Amino acid sequence: MTFKLIINGKTLKGETTTEAVDAATAEKVLKQYANDNGIDGEWTYDDATKTFTVTE
């Protein structure tokens, strides 16, 4: 399955996707991606669209 991350950061905005077997696995990968890029904020997840959003 494809999961999307929408980034609403102070210095970085955009989106990325990852392939994962489930939402929990995708969340780990996407949170690591955000952490690697210095993004720390509030996370939400929409199961209907398989989209995570992080807002700083």
Rank of each mutant, 00 (worst) to 15 (best):
L12N: 09
N37A: 13
D36W: 09
N35E: 14
A24I: 11
D47P: 13
T17H: 09
K50C: 07
G14W: 15
L30S: 01
E42A: 09
L30A: 02
T2V: 13
L12D: 07
G38L: 06
K4D: 03
A34N: 03
K13P: 05
T2A: 07
A24M: 10
V54L: 10
Y45N: 00
T16P: 03
L12H: 14
K4R: 14
T51S: 05
Q32R: 12
K28C: 08
V21K: 14
T49G: 05
A23T: 08
K50Q: 11
K50T: 04
L30G: 00
E27F: 15
Y33S: 02
K4Q: 06
I6L: 08
D22S: 06
W43H: 00
A26K: 00
A48S: 10
N8M: 14
W43G: 00
D47V: 11
I39W: 08
D46F: 04
M1W: 13
T25Y: 06
G41P: 01
L5H: 00
K28W: 08
D22I: 03
Y33V: 05
D46W: 04
I39G: 02
A23D: 04
E19C: 12
T25S: 11
D36G: 06
E27N: 05
A20N: 04
F52W: 08
D47M: 08
Y33P: 00
E19V: 15
D46Q: 05
T49M: 06
Y33R: 04
K13I: 11
E56T: 09
I6Q: 05
E19R: 13
K31R: 15
F52Q: 00
E19G: 05
N35K: 15
N8G: 05
N37V: 14
E56R: 04
K4E: 04
T17I: 08
M1R: 08
T44Y: 09
D46P: 00
D47A: 14
D40N: 14
E56I: 13
V21H: 12
A34H: 01
E19Y: 15
V29N: 11
E56W: 10
T2P: 05
K13T: 10
N37F: 14
K50A: 06
E19K: 13
G41Q: 01
T18I: 15
K10L: 15
A24S: 11
N37E: 08
A26W: 01
T51E: 05
K10S: 10
D36T: 08
T18H: 06
Y45G: 00
N8R: 11
D22M: 03
F52D: 00
T17V: 08
E27L: 15
T49D: 04
A26F: 01
N37Y: 14
L5W: 03
E19A: 07
F3R: 01
K13V: 10
A34M: 07
T44L: 07
Y33C: 05
E15G: 10
G9E: 03
V21T: 13
Y45H: 01
F3P: 01
V54E: 00
W43N: 00
V29W: 12
